[in-house]
C-alpha cells in the first residue's frame, strides 16, 4: 500500500483548481439576474427581465433553430460515419490502423480558423452557396474525432465471441450488427450523438466563415457583443446555454458508462 504523501495538499489544490475552472464562468448566470445594464458590482437587484427579453427576440429564435438543425444533422452524420470505423479500428486487427486514427484526429490539431478558411475556399471553388448546409459539412468534419473517441471507448473490451456466436447460429452479418453489436454499443451511440451535438452547437469559428446569412447561435452572440446595451441579454442567453450543456454532458457521460466497469474518460488529443 502506498503512503499518502501530500494527500491533503493535493486535495486543497484540486479544490482550488475546480474553483478556477468554474467561478469565472459562474459570473454569467450571476449577472444575468442583475437589474442593471452594466456588469459590475454592487449587484442592483434581482430581475428576470433579460430572460424575458431574450425569449421575445425574433433573430435569436431563428439563430437558435438554425443551430438545432445543424447540430442534429452534424451529430447524426458524424456518429453514423464514426460507428463502423470505430468498430473496425478497435476490433479488427488492421494494418495501418494507428495511421487512420491519427488522420481522423487531425481536425482536433488544426486551428479552427484554418478549417474555416479552407472549407470556405472549397465551398467557393465548388460553387456551393454559404448556408446551413455548408456549416453542417464543416461541423460533421470536426465532430468526427469526438464521435470516434467516444465510440471507440465503448468498443474497448467488446466481446467478439458474441458476434461469432450469432454468425455461427446463422444470422447474416447485417442482422448480427443490428441484433448483437448495436444494442451493446447503444449507450456509446447515444453519448456520441449528444456530445457531437454539443460540439456543433457551441462552434463559433467554422460557422462564422461558412454560415453566410443563416446565423447560428454563437455567430448571433458574436454579433450582439458589439452593442454594450445588449450585454445583459447575451448574459442571459449564455447562462441558459451553459446550464443546458452541463446537464447534457453529465447525462451523456452517465449514458456512455452504462454497463461498463471502466471509469476512464474518452481520451482525446493523442493521435
Amino acid at each position: 500500500m502506498e503512503k499518502k504523501h501530500g494527500g491533503i495538499g493535493l486535495m486543497i489544490y484540486a479544490i482550488a483548481y475546480l474553483t478556477f475552472l468554474y467561478v469565472p464562468v459562474l459570473f454569467l448566470p450571476l449577472f444575468s439576474f442583475n437589474d442593471s445594464l452594466f456588469v459590475a458590482f454592487p449587484l442592483k437587484g434581482f430581475t428576470t427581465k433579460w430572460y424575458a427579453q431574450m425569449f421575445e427576440d425574433e433573430a435569436m429564435h431563428r439563430a437558435f433553430w438554425n443551430t438545432l438543425r445543424v447540430g442534429f444533422a452534424a451529430a447524426l452524420a458524424s456518429t453514423a460515419l464514426a460507428l463502423p470505423a470505430a468498430k473496425a479500428l478497435t476490433l479488427n486487427r488492421m494494418r495501418g490502423g494507428n495511421v487512420l486514427i491519427g488522420f481522423a484526429n487531425i481536425p482536433l490539431f488544426v486551428p479552427e480558423i484554418v478549417l474555416g478558411i479552407s472549407l470556405l475556399i472549397l465551398m467557393t471553388a465548388a460553387k456551393v452557396p454559404l448556408s446551413l448546409i455548408s456549416v453542417t459539412v464543416g461541423h460533421t468534419l470536426f465532430c468526427i474525432p469526438f464521435a470516434l473517441a467516444v465510440l471507440m471507448s465503448r468498443f474497448e473490451g467488446f466481446d467478439r465471441s458474441l458476434e461469432e456466436a450469432s454468425l455461427d447460429l446463422g444470422e447474416s452479418g447485417w442482422m448480427t450488427f443490428w441484433r448483437v453489436t448495436f444494442p451493446i454499443v447503444f449507450p456509446g451511440v447515444v453519448a456520441s450523438l449528444l456530445l457531437t451535438f454539443l460540439v456543433s452547437f457551441d462552434d463559433f469559428m467554422v460557422a462564422f466563415f461558412l454560415c453566410g446569412t443563416d446565423t447560428t447561435l454563437p455567430v448571433f452572440i458574436w454579433g450582439e457583443l458589439r452593442f454594450p446595451f445588449k450585454l445583459p441579454g447575451v448574459l442571459a442567453l449564455g447562462a441558459a446555454i451553459l446550464i443546458g450543456s452541463c446537464i447534457l454532458v453529465a447525462f451523456a457521460e452517465w449514458v456512455r458508462r452504462l454497463g461498463t466497469t471502466g471509469s476512464g474518460p474518452a481520451s482525446f488529443g493523442h493521435a
Binding site: 469565472p24 454539443l198 460540439v199 447534457l248
Partner: peptide
C-alpha cells in the same frame, strides 16, 4: 464541452 465563446466572453466581463 461547454461553449468556448462563452468562456472567453466571461473573461471579458
Amino acid at each position: 464541452w461547454t461553449s468556448y465563446l462563452l468562456r472567453v466572453f466571461a473573461w471579458k466581463v
